Simulated assay, not measured.
Amino acid sequence: MSTPDLAPRRTFGGIVAVWVLAVVAGVAIGLFVPTEWRAQWITVALGGCVIAAFAVQLWGGRSQAFIQRVAVSVLGALVVLGLITAGFGLASIVPR
C-alpha cells in the first residue's frame, strides 16, 4: 500500500507545456518548411508531442491518472496542430 500525497503536485502545467510545444513546433514548421512538406512535418511534430507528453508526465512522478494526463496532453496537441494546419490550408487558397 502506498501513502496518499499530503500536498499533491499540480499536473496542469505539464499538460499545457505539451500544448505550448505543439504551438512552437507548428509555427516553426510554418516559417521554415516548404509548403509541399508541411503535412509530413506536422505529423512528425505530433509524434514529438506524444513522446514529450510521456516524458513530462513520467518526470512528474505521479501515477494517479497518468493515462488521462497523457491523453489530454496529446489530444490538446492534436487540436493545436490541427488548427495550425487549417490555417496553413486557408493561407494556401488566398491569392497572392
Rank of each mutant, 00 (worst) to 15 (best):
M1F: 11
A91W: 14
W19I: 04
R69E: 05
V79R: 01
A28W: 06
G61F: 07
S63H: 11
W41A: 11
L78H: 04
G14M: 03
L81I: 08
C49A: 11
G26K: 02
F12T: 12
T3C: 08
R96Q: 13
R38Q: 10
A25P: 00
R10A: 12
S2G: 14
W41K: 01
L90G: 12
V23W: 03
A53D: 03
I93G: 02
T85R: 11
G13Q: 06
W19M: 15
W19Q: 14
V18P: 07
A45H: 00
G87V: 04
L21R: 00
V50A: 15
I51V: 13
I84T: 08
I67T: 12
S92R: 09
G30H: 00
V72G: 01
I51W: 10
A52Q: 03
V18Y: 09
R10N: 15
G61M: 01
V23A: 15
V74K: 05
P34Q: 05
S92D: 15
V27C: 08
A22K: 00
R96S: 13
R62G: 04
L58V: 01
R38P: 01
G82E: 02
S92M: 05
A77Q: 08
I15V: 14
I51M: 15
V80Y: 02
W59C: 02
V16M: 12
A39M: 02
A77T: 06
F32N: 06
Q40R: 09
F32P: 00
P34V: 05
P95I: 07
C49G: 05
A77Y: 07
V80C: 03
G14V: 03
G76C: 12
T85S: 15
A77N: 03
G30S: 04
D5Y: 11
D5S: 14
W59G: 05
R9N: 05
I93T: 13
